[in-house]
Write a protein that binds this DNA or RNA. Sequence first.
DNA 1: CTCTTTGCAAAATGTTTGCATTGCG
DNA 2: CGCAATGCAAACATTTTGCAAAGAG
Lengths: 148, 148
Amino acid sequence: MMEEKLSKKHLEQLKQLCNEAGIKLTHQRLEIFCELIAHPGHPSAEMIHKRIHKKLPTIAIDTVYRTLATFDELGLIKKLHVMNERTLFDTNLDIHHHFICTRCKKVNDIYWSDFDNTTLPETIENMGKVESRHLEIHGICNSCLDKT
Amino acid sequence: MMEEKLSKKHLEQLKQLCNEAGIKLTHQRLEIFCELIAHPGHPSAEMIHKRIHKKLPTIAIDTVYRTLATFDELGLIKKLHVMNERTLFDTNLDIHHHFICTRCKKVNDIYWSDFDNTTLPETIENMGKVESRHLEIHGICNSCLDKT
DNA sequence: CTCTTTGCAAAATGTTTGCATTGCG
DNA sequence: CGCAATGCAAACATTTTGCAAAGAG
């Protein structure tokens, strides 16, 4: 994935978002926002904290957690809970699923619209009011297979 | 789900299992084993610990964790990682999926063999060596809907 | 009798909270 | 300037680990 250059565009984008939500645009929120754009995927709070440490050496891990929670509420990212691992935050808001490598634990996005459009069997529909479905495929990813 | 009576059968069953695995049949392992049979589903380590506390008041929570890990290795149960929740242990080893209530967090088993037998699209198969697939349906379960 | 397993305590991990201080609007 | 947000420290919840003592084979 190509690293996207940060630009004034992002500043404006976040400024507007904060305005709409009635929250303040802080230095920290901006850096985390830029980091999410620069390195999309499934970062953990710890990863983000580590990555922006050069730019903001004094930022605390709890600020990262709080900011990610805020962004989650704004719908900018989505909390993601995978396997035995720490909480991840998904920057991809499109409907998608995950291929999780049992060896390196990397999470890769999967798209399968045919499945998304499939009607669930009645037995499942009858269990309650279905809100969403998420598929997790476990296996060994190609890059781990290559290393064998 | 009917509560199954414990019997000598279970003692024999576990005795054999331990023998095969070359591990000792301890008091604690037996009680946890019986508890899993008596209350199948998706218990957490804490739940098990609480439930067998009457019978074994001195059992430590770390013994429960260790025993469940052992049982997981023996293939007797399966570790289960759901949402923001603590680790659960699935007593159901059949291929199945989960309906997770977004309100009460209860996990219900789903069977959908048509889906299990569906070939995955090439795009997914090409991501690596697929080992298993797991579907999580999120929604509001009937018992929560009834309470509304 | 030996070697595994337990119980205890304490560490490790990941995340959250209370509170005084900072800084955005 | 006022209130929201931060940094710090400490609490918190869950799980793991080291070690001496207990107990199964």
